[in-house]
Computed example of a mutant assay.
Amino acid sequence: MNELEIETVLSKVMEFLYELMKNQSGSQFFEKLFVFCNEEQRTRIILALTKFPLKLVNVCINSYGAKAMNTILEKLTEPQQISLLMSALSPAAIALANDPSGQHVIIYCVKHFSGEYNEHLLNDIADNCLKLATNRSGCCVLQSCVENHHGEARDRLISEIIVNAVHLAGDPFGNYVVQHLLGMRIPDVAADLYKRFLGYFASLSCNKYASNVVEKFLFHSGQMHAASITMELLTSPYATKLLVDPFGNFVIQSALKNSKGHAHDALRNLIQVNAASMQSNLYGRKILEHLEKRKQHSA
């Protein structure tokens, strides 16, 4: 299409943009049209879309609309265009982040736009950390915020995650947020998380979701912390239960892999003492089989 043809088409659809973007065929047409538009035409489209922010949010929580919105975001080059869109979207950041379609819009903004455009959005996310972390979509947004930004708002977000980390560890979605933070291997953050979990490692090891967090600690927090966690498991009232627990057995296997010295020897001793009863338990046998494989491998 030439410039005149694009202008003719654009003039006919400008008042129907919201409806167009939420329609399966219409959204595909809109995406192609936006790609062909020049910067002035794109700015006009953005001005029209941001005139009614609530309607724009409704576009973003529609699966077709969210895809069309991402096409817009990918083509933005002018600071004015970015500012207009972020001003319209930021007040609804939490609703969008917790929505299966809206999350993709927020994640794109977080990944590709600098802090000057995202500051208000990131502060709102930090204020609503717990609400987002325990939501299927919101937990993905949180992980993206932590990974892709720096500065005061991100630091505050990390602090909120740490404060709520023990609670989040046992949540079906929150546990991924804690695991992601541990996996980033930021020394001060890892140390603060370790302090927050002291005294809870054994009980959390019997939880379907939190046991994954304990395993992450064992793999990523270094030998000193791995030994300390292992000793906490061994000296807790849950020690023998962990050997035959559906989730605890995986923690014990991780402790065997990642602990050394006295802690490792003490764990092997606990297993030997309880080997007979473990043989008659499905999960206990998993640990014994794991030990046997390690023994064969090192032979």
Score class of each variant (00 low, 15 high):
residue 254 S to Q: 12
residue 14 M to W: 10
residue 69 M to N: 07
residue 172 P to R: 09
residue 35 V to W: 04
residue 259 S to R: 05
residue 166 V to C: 10
residue 260 K to L: 03
residue 117 Y to F: 15
residue 151 G to N: 04
residue 57 V to W: 08
residue 224 M to V: 14
residue 176 Y to I: 11
residue 293 K to F: 09
residue 7 E to K: 15
residue 181 L to M: 03
residue 35 V to R: 15
residue 208 K to C: 11
residue 220 H to F: 07
residue 96 L to F: 14
residue 30 F to P: 12
residue 230 T to H: 03
residue 215 E to I: 03
residue 171 D to I: 11
residue 135 N to L: 01
residue 34 F to L: 01
residue 267 L to G: 00
residue 55 K to H: 13
residue 253 Q to S: 02
residue 18 Y to R: 10
residue 258 N to A: 01
residue 3 E to F: 02
residue 84 L to E: 10
residue 290 H to W: 06
residue 62 N to G: 12
residue 148 N to M: 06
residue 291 L to M: 10
residue 218 L to R: 02
residue 118 N to W: 01
residue 235 T to Q: 15
residue 215 E to F: 01
residue 32 K to T: 14
residue 157 L to N: 00
residue 233 L to G: 09
residue 92 A to F: 15
residue 194 Y to C: 03
residue 217 F to A: 03
residue 5 E to I: 14
residue 89 L to S: 08
residue 156 R to Q: 15
residue 87 S to N: 15
residue 188 D to V: 12
residue 69 M to I: 06
residue 53 P to H: 08
residue 214 V to T: 00
residue 249 N to H: 07
residue 3 E to W: 00
residue 183 G to I: 02
residue 3 E to H: 12
residue 213 V to G: 09
residue 292 E to K: 05
residue 50 T to K: 10
residue 36 F to A: 13
residue 41 Q to L: 04
residue 220 H to I: 02
residue 70 N to A: 00
residue 90 S to N: 13
residue 173 F to Y: 15
residue 116 E to G: 04
residue 269 N to H: 10
residue 264 H to E: 02
residue 49 L to V: 11
residue 146 V to S: 08
residue 29 F to N: 14
residue 100 P to D: 05
residue 127 D to L: 10
residue 124 D to P: 00
residue 261 G to A: 07
residue 68 A to G: 11
residue 288 L to G: 03
residue 52 F to M: 11
residue 76 L to S: 03
residue 127 D to A: 15
residue 102 G to C: 00
residue 154 R to L: 03
residue 119 E to C: 10
residue 71 T to F: 02
residue 230 T to M: 00
residue 212 N to T: 06
residue 249 N to P: 06
residue 9 V to S: 14
residue 111 K to D: 11
residue 269 N to F: 05
residue 262 H to R: 04
residue 42 R to F: 08
residue 298 S to V: 09
residue 256 L to Q: 08
residue 284 G to S: 02
residue 127 D to W: 03
residue 20 L to F: 05
residue 289 E to R: 05
residue 87 S to M: 09
residue 4 L to N: 13
residue 296 Q to V: 06
residue 26 G to M: 13
residue 85 L to C: 07
residue 178 V to R: 11
residue 54 L to P: 00
residue 203 S to L: 12
residue 281 N to P: 09
residue 56 L to T: 07
residue 254 S to I: 01
residue 104 H to N: 02
residue 6 I to F: 08
residue 137 S to Q: 04
residue 6 I to L: 13
residue 54 L to E: 14
residue 117 Y to S: 12
residue 45 I to W: 06
